[in-house]
Each structure stands twice: as structure tokens, then as C-alpha cells.
Design a protein around this nucleic acid. Structure first.
Lengths: 104, 104
DNA sequence: CGCTTAATTAAACGATTACTGAAATGACGT
DNA sequence: ACGTCATTTCAGTAATCGTTTAATTAAGCG
């Protein structure tokens, strides 16, 4: 489950897709094209992300609108928090970052 | 950088190695064997994790002791914190989302 | 009804990855 | 020095991955 999520994100193109969707919320497949890649290639990446449970597809006429499934990202967050004590030890400055995130 | 980390962890065997090292701190290559896999295969996985900057190797006589580099896990923690607002908010709004859109 | 647009699927390829067994390295105890 | 244990390196092969071209589905528009 979690390995599948990591595997899907272990590709620069797919990670970029996910990060952009995290920022924009929802976008059509065509709008997510980076210009250099063919549409089928993009579609394949969408499928990988869908199969990994990271992306959700909503159909609007001909358009396929994609968005990130919160549960998938939450799983990573939960994993990192589980081991937070480990990576927190090595860098005290991280406390500031965490504080900042906790106080919006 | 981060995609490489995800890619390395996107393999059940390697993720298991990392999680065990996160718990135990440090372990020899031989002790990390799961019984089913050949030593060369394990060695290869160690190399992948080393190349991704996730594992650190310490030589003690014939033994190779591995441990997790905190920076690598920290990168994931930071990434998840960056998008924490997304998955926390979405969790809060889950009821509305189910009511609004996900009714079949 | 054709024509265009949006996107996915199918087929095929080269490249990379994941294993295996066999051999090599390196370090210890006698 | 010798034998041995722990681990890595070396071929080699099977499987998977990422991409492309071509064909397909489906909706909107004249």
C-alpha cells in the first residue's frame, strides 16, 4: 500500500503532477501537460497514480478532471510523523518549521 | 532528489529494510536478511538505498553496518508538512465532501 | 451527420530493474 | 599462512518501466 504510493511518486513527472494538483486542487488532463510529453504518456502516468490510489478522476464531458485523494497524502504524513522523533533529533531547527506550520 | 528517495522506498523489500533500521538504529547486512532473498539481491538493495542517500554504511571488520541518514527521512517529513494543510483540511471537510459529491 | 477536440487504450520498442548462481574480496581466529 | 565467515562484484536472464505511434471512445459543434 505505502510502497505503491512511494513507487508512484518515485518519478519526477508524476511527482510534479501531484504537486501541481496539491496547489491547484483540480485540473484537466490536458492542462497538466508539460509540453514535452505526449498525451498517451501523460495518460499512462495518470493511470499509475490512479491505480496507486493517489489520484481521483472526475468526468466532465470530454474532460477528465484530476484531483489528489487526501487519504493518500495523509498516509505519507502519518508515516513521516511516526518516525518524526528519529529525524527530528538530528536537526533542532526543524522545531521552528513545525511551529510555523502549526500556527497559521 | 525527492523523487529518488520515493523511488528507492517504492519497493517493499527496501521499505522494510528502512523501517527496521528506523526502529533498531543500526544493523549488519546479514542481520537484515529476510530469509527468502539471496545475499547478492540484498546487497543490491543496499546499494540502491545508499545511492539514493537514504542509507549510511559503517564498516566494522567484516561486517557492514547500515543506518538511516536522518536528512533523507527529514526530506519526506518536510514534504508532508508542506502539504499538511491540504490533507488536514480535507479530513475536516470529509463529511461535506461525502454529502456533496460522493453520493452514488 | 461529419469534423474537431479531449483523452484513453493497444501494441511495440528500448532501457532499466530485480533477481540468480558463481567467483572474488576482505577480515577475523586459529 | 589457512580456512572461514560476511559481503560485494560479476555475468546473465527474466521481468518491469517509460515512451512512442497508431487506433479508439466519447462529447460538442457546425
Amino acid at each position: 500500500m505505502l510502497p505503491d504510493t512511494f513507487a508512484a511518486l518515485g518519478n519526477a513527472t508524476r511527482l510534479a503532477i501531484v504537486e501541481r494538483l496539491l496547489r491547484e486542487g483540480e485540473a484537466a488532463a490536458g492542462d497538466l501537460a508539460d509540453g514535452t510529453m505526449s498525451a498517451p504518456a501523460m495518460s499512462h502516468h495518470f493511470k499509475v497514480l490512479r491505480d496507486a490510489g493517489i489520484l481521483e478522476q472526475r468526468v466532465d464531458a470530454q474532460r477528465r478532471l484530476y484531483s489528489v485523494r487526501p487519504e493518500a497524502i495523509r498516509a505519507i504524513g502519518r508515516w513521516s510523523l511516526t518516525h518524526r522523533q528519529f529525524w527530528e533529533q538530528s536537526l533542532d531547527r526543524l522545531d521552528q518549521l513545525i511551529d510555523k506550520e502549526n500556527r497559521p
